[in-house]
Computed example of a mutant assay.
Amino acid sequence: MSEPGRDQSRVVLGLTGSIGMGKSATAGLFAKHGIPVYDADAAVHRLYAAGGAVAQAIGKTFPGSLKPDGAVDRDQLRQIILDQPDALRRLEALVHPLVRNENRAFLEQHANASLVVLDVPLLFETGADKRCDAVLVVSAPSEVQRARVLARPGMTQAAFDTIIAKQMPDAEKRFRADIVIDTSLGFAHAEAEIVALIARLTDSG
C-alpha cells in the first residue's frame, strides 16, 4: 500500500476502526510497547483549540461554531454538519490538509524508527492508507460496538446511527485490512496480538 519510492527501512502501520471498536485502546497498547503513534484525533483537537490553526477558519465558514474563547465548539459544529448536507465536505477541505501536514511532520520526526503507527479514524475514507505499508483494523461484533458507544456520556441511539451511517462499513474495512484484531476477545488477547505483530514487523521476535 505504500507509495512508490518511499523509504522501506521503516514500517508505517495504519490503525483504524469504526466508533466503539477499541481503536484508541489499541493505539495505547502500541505506545505502551514503545512504538511511536500518530493520533489524528489529537491533531484535530489541537487545530480546534483557541488559537489553533483552523479554528478561526471554521468560525468564518460555520457561524456560531466557536466558543467565546475562540475554540471550536465541537457539539455545535456537529449539529451544523448534521443540518447541512454539504457541511462535512467543506469542513474536511479545511481540516484534512492541516492534519496531513502534522502527519508528515510526525513521520519526519520518527524517520529512524523501525515501526510507526498512524492512528486515523478515517484512514480509508481520506486515502491515508496509501501512505501505509500495512493496515490494521480493530473490530468487534455489532452488538458489542453498540453497547460500548451507547455507554458513553451524552450518546444517544440517534447520534450513534448518524455516525455509523457516515463511516465506511466495518465489513468493508475488514475486507481491505491486512490485519484484523477482534477487541471483543479481551484486553489481554489484544495485547498479545499486538506484541506478536510488533515482533513480526520489526524482526525483533
Rank of each mutant, 00 (worst) to 15 (best):
A53G: 14
D69Q: 07
T61D: 08
I58A: 00
R90C: 02
D83A: 15
R46A: 13
G59S: 10
D83I: 04
V72E: 05
Q79R: 14
A55M: 07
R78C: 07
Y48Q: 01
Q79M: 07
A55T: 06
Q56S: 11
E92Y: 09
D69V: 05
R46M: 09
Q79V: 02
D86K: 10
T61E: 15
F62D: 12
F62C: 09
A71R: 08
Q79P: 04
A55R: 03
A87I: 05
L82Y: 11
L66R: 03
A71K: 06
D75Q: 13
R90W: 06
V54I: 06
E92Q: 14
P63W: 15
G52C: 08
A49F: 09
G70L: 09
G52A: 04
D75W: 08
I80R: 10
A49N: 06
Y48H: 08
I58H: 02
P63Y: 14
D75L: 14
L91P: 06
L77M: 09
R74T: 01
V54E: 04
R78N: 12
G64A: 01
L91R: 01
R74A: 04
R89E: 15
Q79F: 04
Q56P: 00
R74H: 02
A55I: 07
Q56K: 10
Q84N: 03
V54D: 05
A49Y: 11
P85T: 02
G70E: 13
D86I: 05
E92L: 11
Q76I: 13
S65C: 11
R78T: 09
A49R: 07
V72D: 03
L47R: 00
R90P: 03
A71E: 14
